[in-house]
């Protein structure tokens, strides 16, 4: 199952505690907050628009979040959802850099996916390093193809592949 990026714009009263009150239903229904920003330039006398960016796995929860916010007296100005995103985290263990990590990343992205983040933990040059990749795709099939390609790459480069 994939997940969705949601952009939710709310009208919050400019008083303490409002932000927390708005966050609670988002978190309760599985929203993973990626960012929050105020639009102070559009501020009214006693309220201001606030944009919440979050990921949501189950789209059914979006209407639950809206209802819960409205029950708390928070006005939902608008919301936008992106197309579904499919994600995978993988770990590569071994001589990931010495075996040309740029080539590895190019070959992954040639499968039509995005490598959103790369984390590496490197020891002495002779020791294996560990790399974590966040891979995103707009179709599950592209992720499946990528995993097959990664298996090939890891076999060629003698790396250990750990998939989620």
């Amino acid at each position: 199952m994939g997940s969705y990026n949601i952009r939710l714009e709310l009208e919050l009263k400019d008083t303490p505690g409002q932000l927390l009150m708005a966050l609670e239903p988002i978190a309760r229904f599985g929203g993973n907050i990626r960012g929050i920003y105020h639009e102070r330039e559009r501020k009214e006398v006693d309220s201001l628009p606030v944009v919440f960016l979050f990921e949501l796995e189950d789209l059914k929860n979006l209407s639950r979040i809206k209802t819960a916010l409205e029950d708390k007296g928070i006005k939902v100005i608008k919301f936008l959802k992106d197309a579904e995103i499919f994600k995978k985290i993988v770990l590569l263990i071994g001589h990931v850099f010495a075996t040309n990590i740029l080539d590895t990343l190019d070959r992954i992205m040639a499968c039509g996916v995005r490598v959103r983040e790369v984390y590496a933990m490197i020891n002495r040059p002779e020791d294996p390093s560990t790399v974590k990749l966040f891979i995103e795709a707009d179709e599950q099939k592209k992720l499946d193809i990528t995993m097959e390609e990664l298996e090939k790459i890891c076999e060629e480069k003698n790396l250990m592949l750990i998939k989620s």
């Binding site: 933990m121 020891n123 294996p128 390093s129 750990i162």
Partner: peptide, 9 residues
């Protein structure tokens, strides 16, 4: 060959 770093990541 699982590294401690892999567990942490």
């Amino acid at each position: 060959n699982i590294t401690q770093e892999a567990v942490e990541l």
